[in-house]
Design a binder for these strands. Structure first.
Lengths: 189, 189
DNA sequence: ATAAAGTCTTGACATTTGTCAAGAGTGGCC
DNA sequence: GGCCACTCTTGACAAATGTCAAGACTTTAT
């Protein structure tokens, strides 16, 4: 498990990876079954997660119990609830495993320590932030300007992998529509 | 103009601001009138901007000419088109002044140089990324899960300042609805 | 000062999307 | 193997939102 994280970090940083073994030693493995939670609304996000294998659904729940998915995080990607993690305020989001998953978690305290001690770790963190931010800007622009059918087409063009791994219900919650509407849109493609 | 940037950086970094004067010297002033553009779709985003005074609309335009606003950037905030700036690919967004504005711009090359030479500058950049990212996560969750009236109420609760400075048309484009729908929603408040 | 352009509102109507209900199919679990 | 919970689909209808057109009003440019 840790080897995959090691390879991932090397691919981001190149050769200059002094202290990499120590950095990795702070990550603790977590095994998740389908529908296990990594984080629930109201809890503090005390860890930064690296998804080694599997898939995590990041979603919110409104007063009527409707789930809306902000993102799906697949293997070899990073995950945290940024405002809860940084400011230690209650999370608005849930993180739930879609399938059996292996995750590596580093605590907030260790994360801060590693950022301070290893400039290369901080650099990688910055890269993750840049990617996550530009990804979310994309999602905002897509979502706000397109209707449901356009969003579905966009998802098919840009995230085709997701269709092979998600239920229809989950795809609908990512598109921000009801499952019934999703069923009907499929007929219009 | 530069004094405001200096104060802003000090407020973010505290006392440890060695080299601050040199950092600031790389920022060049730009004056904008209403409806002047800082960036257009298709151009490369070659600068990082600090808004000293005024307001900038960040928006996209679809095939039918409809404008959708991702964000309004007011004075004492930072602005860039992150994916265009980092990867030097064409921008998907427009940046346009809503009112007379004063902006300080640092070129991409200088920005990279400053990040490399001044750890404190890099730290501030990271803070800006963290804030921008958590802000955009909020916007996604708000937008995807709420209907138009709920989004309007959310905006009134969380961004009340904007109403004093924006036309109805702009507010509608931020809410992702037509101006007519916005007019009607106001009656339901 | 005046004309032109743009904004805001309102009404009528079309389209999109949601809600509720029912039934067929699917997969997990004992 | 059989039951249970869940998903997916379909139909009927309701609610939300968009589009188009018109008129009053405001702002901008000359």
């Amino acid at each position: 498990m840790h080897e995959i994280l090691e390879q991932h970090i090397r691919s981001k940083l190149g050769k200059d990876t002094e202290g990499l073994e120590e950095v990795i030693s702070y990550f603790k493995p977590i095994q998740l079954k389908r529908n296990d939670y990594l984080l629930r609304e109201g809890e503090l996000c005390r860890h930064c997660y690296f998804i080694v294998d599997g898939a995590i659904q990041v979603f919110t729940v409104d007063g009527a119990g409707n789930e809306t998915t902000r993102d799906f995080i697949l293997e070899e990607n990073w995950l945290m609830e940024i405002s809860s993690f940084l400011q230690q305020v209650p999370s608005k989001e849930f993180f739930r495993a879609i399938a059996t998953s292996q995750v590596l978690a580093v605590s907030r305290d260790h994360f801060m320590e590693l950022s301070a001690r290893f400039p290369q770790f901080e650099k990688m963190y910055r890269q993750i932030l840049e990617l996550s931010y530009s990804h979310s800007v994309y999602r905002i622009n897509t979502f706000v300007s397109m209707d449901a059918l356009e969003r579905l087409r966009w998802m098919m063009d840009n995230q085709p992998k997701l269709f092979t791994r998600l239920s229809s219900k989950m795809i609908a919650s990512y598109l921000g529509i009801s499952p019934e509407t999703y069923t009907r849109l499929k007929g219009k493609l």
